[in-house]
Design a protein around this nucleic acid. Sequence first.
DNA 1: GATGAATGAGAGTTCATTCAT
DNA 2: CATGAATGAACTCTCATTCAT
Lengths: 190, 190, 190, 190
Amino acid sequence: MSPRTPQQFENIRTEKKQIIMDAALEVFAQKSYHGASISQIAKVAGVSKGLMYNYFKNKEALISELLIVQFNRIFDSHKININNIDDHELVLFIEKSFSLLDENPEFWKLLFGLTMQTEVLEIIMPQMEKVLEPFLVGFTKYFASKGFDNPIAETQFFWGIMDGLSMDYITMGLPKEYCIQRIKDIYKID
Amino acid sequence: MSPRTPQQFENIRTEKKQIIMDAALEVFAQKSYHGASISQIAKVAGVSKGLMYNYFKNKEALISELLIVQFNRIFDSHKININNIDDHELVLFIEKSFSLLDENPEFWKLLFGLTMQTEVLEIIMPQMEKVLEPFLVGFTKYFASKGFDNPIAETQFFWGIMDGLSMDYITMGLPKEYCIQRIKDIYKID
Amino acid sequence: MSPRTPQQFENIRTEKKQIIMDAALEVFAQKSYHGASISQIAKVAGVSKGLMYNYFKNKEALISELLIVQFNRIFDSHKININNIDDHELVLFIEKSFSLLDENPEFWKLLFGLTMQTEVLEIIMPQMEKVLEPFLVGFTKYFASKGFDNPIAETQFFWGIMDGLSMDYITMGLPKEYCIQRIKDIYKID
Amino acid sequence: MSPRTPQQFENIRTEKKQIIMDAALEVFAQKSYHGASISQIAKVAGVSKGLMYNYFKNKEALISELLIVQFNRIFDSHKININNIDDHELVLFIEKSFSLLDENPEFWKLLFGLTMQTEVLEIIMPQMEKVLEPFLVGFTKYFASKGFDNPIAETQFFWGIMDGLSMDYITMGLPKEYCIQRIKDIYKID
DNA sequence: GATGAATGAGAGTTCATTCAT
DNA sequence: CATGAATGAACTCTCATTCAT
């Protein structure tokens, strides 16, 4: 009978928002941005279409917030010392990357799917770049220390390899251990 | 003014169809499958909406036929001797792969974009697999001959690398020559 | 902390209701009936959406009650002796009319805006007519006493003039003194 | 069997557009801008909702085009010599004004209803002002020639009177002849 | 072969209203 | 008395598809 406290409302919002974002990730990953509808997401989340707009201003804000939250969560979980990468840290990074694919394949499917859609991607580009930048700088330093003549190009090359392996791992299931070993070979680690 | 022969009609059909497919590729690549509309494609092709359905049963048939035609054209253009790949042929394959990206970036953007959308992709999956199969077999033979313990896994690894470099090359412009050299290094070619 | 008496509750109700109605008037005047939303009004009033329905059965009841209250308030403030209008009282009426426009332009904007929307207007028509009737009767008597052959028609004519001047005064700012003087001219007063 | 000519398409468009605009005028007049829905208008016009957007970019464009067309049509039909108004022409203007109300009450209902809604009105304000300007200038000259000390104010006063009488004429049916005569009295014509 | 008017389903979005607390 | 989460209907608008010509 007594009215809910602000704290109670806050809790409801937090939980419900999470439920909606989980549903959105699932549906967006399956159908990509334009192919997914708010109705479908609402149905998966078990809420009414109208409620979606109580939590997110519009479809764009939904995917945007979703991507940013996931993106931060994932790159925060890389515990490597970005400013001082050595062989050991590189291996950790690679292993962690693969295990992140296992943990959250939906997100990666979505992200790789969006990579080709400039229009949608540019919504979160600034945020993404901010998060990625330190990694790229760290890797460049690492490759320089390994004696690469063109450490920037090598970073791009390494990143490209990781992208491709990640993508194919999700869609077709590459042999994870084999791939990790091969990368170690390439960089003469162990 | 003179009545057209059946052959002439056939030619007109073939040419118009090509015009429409070119327009479709352009628009699909830009906006992805669900984001592109038949109207837009018709406008780019310079034909009426109605005519689109004279040549293609529906939107799905349009993208399907488009992808298959392009896919065949592209893999046909790999002139390597698939059944007997050697170091030299591998290098040719890699170089040709990059030059195909330059020739037809639209198509690759579209294809990579669709890779994550099961729903759309499975339309052309069977056809794609039929075309890819011989390549995978050929590479497996090659890697076996190079002494790899697990040539199937190595083929997947190689394919993954190529996918990633291709994707990043299109979207962000990797240094092509550097990447090619690095692959040669990896396989100790030259 | 001490329990509130029924009288205190009643006072709270009355005050809150007034706050809501003030907010409603503001928003309705700006956006018209259909263009205004309960949420907006609640926000302006500084109360929750839910509370709105504690005080008013629904949106229609809100505007209806609002209009009636304002309407009564305004016509009550005409202190003229309705049953015995003379030249002096007419001038007072006209001057008071203009000053009411200045005091509460929001209300008049709303009222004139609704005048053309039968659907909304008929909600308060009966009440309005009850309030207006005595004025019309009074003016008719006055115009009859002034020697007009068709005092009813003259009342309508006078009323129409006042409507038009009021409307244009609110929307475009006519020169008030000039208009008042011109009406005095027309009726040969002073 | 032969395809329609561009002329035939043109004719279809012109006729259908007129049907839709007639329906729109009817519904907008009854319910005002925000209260009227595209669905309702489509139903009255006897077309599908979708077709509405083949003819008008959106709701705003519909009312805008509608108002401008009607506005021009109406003010074009005033055949008075705007640059040289005399007593006779003034009477013609007044009589014509009333007969226009009879001919097209829907439009006037809509226009007066919108007068209070800045937001909607400003869509067509520039166009309206362009049409009205010459009339206001003409009347000002006329009142100056009649010896009014403040002919601009008199024009505003006259316009206000006409607005009010028009509005009340539409909504409540003033006695037309009586009103016309009274205006003649005011300006000492005949 | 070719056109574009026309449809209808469904997209994104808003909002009056209800209700558990 | 008071809150805001939740709903569902209705809104504006889009688009694949059909069809008369």
